[in-house]
Structures are given as structure tokens and as C-alpha cells.
Amino acid sequence: MEFGKVTPEELAGIDFRLPPDRAETTALLSRSKHNDQKTKVYVGCAKWGRKDWVGKIYPKGTKEADFLSHYARHFSCIELNATFYRMPTESQTIAWRNKVGKDFQFCPKFTDQITHLRRLKDVQQLVDRFLAGIAGFGENLGPVFLMPHPGMGPQTIDTLEAFIQSLPRDLRLFVELRHTDWFSDPESFEKVFNMLEKYEAGAVITDASGRRDCVHMRLTTPQAFIRFVGNGLHPTDYTRVDDWVRRIKKWMDEGMEKVYFFMHQHEELHSPELCKYLIGQLNKHCGTAIPEPVFVPAGELFDVPVKKKSVAKKTSKR
């Protein structure tokens, strides 16, 4: 992942501390009806098709067709960027669903035909195809991830709102904003985040070294979708994770319903190591009991994938 990438020399000068929660975030969590229930925390990566994970978390000799089955043993969700590059089909998503357990969550990204080529305009037929494709995930469908084209700034808020309003109401949606003007102009910031809260659409928080403005700490639902971009297991990766664990614990105490935490690296080779550290700290400080990724012992040659199925889910219009 190249977003927010900086040089090694620049890392020392970056203030990685998380900003305080915005007042709206605290107020929203205080209204949550989830206070007496346990927060569900999902942790995952952005890819399962990593050949360099063979011999690390995939047993030696694992075939590419079995990567997802093994991935789902270590992680509870996937930020599915594959659907950004290629329109999903129902047969494809059913096949993926059949390789994971019943609690695993696929979080697919809207295809670039919708978000980048047409910039959310005149896309109803494409959206219908996309929704039909991801329906194959059934109960394994997590929140859907919308990243408008980075060139779409505050002047396109009406287009963004119309698009969100057109979606099925029971589609769990998170939106990642990248245009800098959303964050630099207070009026635009307030307007767009209030709009997201109005439609119960979540706001993605992307923690990347070179784009600290995207660490906005303005939740619009009592759920969080965090995209953490590390720097190859640099020491700051660990202190940043520690900061996130403290913030997640605070949110849990205030009524957070769900947290989706997706680990990225500019070189994804080391994402499993940082996930293991994150999960260990969450279990230690937040009272969770998330299974940690298990690394392949030296000399282990194979394992047998497990397949489970779930049922499709229905949608109604937003």
C-alpha cells in the first residue's frame, strides 16, 4: 500500500500520537445501546494471496487455491480490495464463502468502475451488479468499503450523498475520504461527517504516516473501521499499535459495538507479525479473547483446510 508513504528519514519527525476524540464521537458512543454488551473486535489484513506467507503462516507446500482457507484460520476478516479491481460475481463470492468459517467477515471494496471511472454518477446498473455479486457472501458479508475517487472533494458532497441514499438500508457501509479539503476546511468536515451520521454510514479512519489528517477521530456510527499502515515493523509501528489499543479500550468502555482493524504495510510481508502483536495487546488490555496468528513451526510441511458454509442475506432499499 503506497498511500501515505514517507521516507525512513521522515519517520522520526512525525507525531504519531492519536488526536483526542471529537466531541461528536464521545456523544455518539454515549447514546449507544450497546453499553451492556461485549464489543466485537475483528482483525485482518488486505490480502490473502501472499506467496511469501507460505512457510510463515501458511504451511509449506500450500497451494494458492488453499490460501484463503488458511488465512481464515488466523484472521477474522479481510479488507477485500480484489473487488475494487474486478466486479465480483455471486458464484465467485459463494466459492470464497465456502472456504471460511461462519463468523469470518468479508469487507469488500466498491469496484473502481463505480468510484473512480464514473465517480458515483449514473452507476445504478453497476451497483446492482456489485450487490448481486457480493450477495454470495451471505452471513459472511461484513461492512462494504466505499472509497470515492481521491479527486472528489467538498464540491461533490451532493453526489456522495445521493449515492449513499440510493443504497439498501441494511447494507453496512463505511466511507474513506481522501481529498485533503474534507479535513482542512472545518465547514466541509462538519457537513460531510454529519451527513454520514445521518445515513448511519461509518467513517473509515486511515492511520498512515504521511496523511495524519485522515486520523480524524470522528465516528459516525458506534462501529469503527481502522486501516493501519505500518512501516515494515519499524519501532514506531509498535508504539502506534499500543496507542490504538488504549483508544479501542476507551471506546469499548463507552459503548462501542464493533471494531474492524485492518493491518497494512507498504510491504505486506510483515503484516502477520504486527497483527499478532496487536491481538496480544488487545487480549491483554481490553479483555478480548481473539486467537493469535500461528506461525508455521520449522519442519512442518502441510495442513488440511477446513470448509464451512453460510446462507445468503437479503437487502432492502435505503
Rank of each mutant, 00 (worst) to 15 (best):
G4V: 10
V6S: 02
E9T: 07
E10H: 05
L11W: 03
S32M: 07
N35I: 11
K38Q: 14
G44I: 10
C45P: 00
K47T: 09
W48H: 04
R50V: 03
K51T: 11
W53R: 06
G55Q: 06
G55S: 10
K56R: 13
Y58L: 07
Y58G: 05
P59S: 05
T62V: 11
T62A: 11
L68R: 03
E79Y: 03
A82E: 06
P88G: 08
S91D: 14
Q92K: 13
W96G: 04
R97T: 09
N98Q: 14
K102W: 00
D103Q: 13
Q105A: 09
K109T: 09
H116D: 05
R118H: 12
R118C: 01
R119A: 11
V123L: 03
V123Y: 03
D128A: 10
G136Y: 12
N140D: 08
G142L: 07
M147E: 14
P148V: 07
H149M: 04
G153C: 03
E161Y: 07
L167M: 15
D170Q: 13
F174I: 07
L177N: 03
W182N: 11
E190Y: 02
K191H: 11
N194E: 13
M195E: 06
M195A: 12
E197K: 14
E200R: 12
G202S: 11
G210M: 10
R211L: 13
C214Y: 04
H216T: 12
R218F: 05
R218V: 08
I226Y: 11
R227C: 10
N231W: 01
H234W: 09
P235Y: 10
T236F: 11
T236W: 06
R247M: 14
K249R: 14
K258T: 12
E267D: 15
E267L: 06
S271I: 04
S271E: 15
P272H: 06
P272K: 07
G280T: 12
Q281D: 13
L282I: 11
K284Y: 06
H285S: 10
H285T: 08
G287Y: 10
T288V: 07
A298E: 14
V306Q: 12
K313D: 08
T315A: 05
R318V: 06
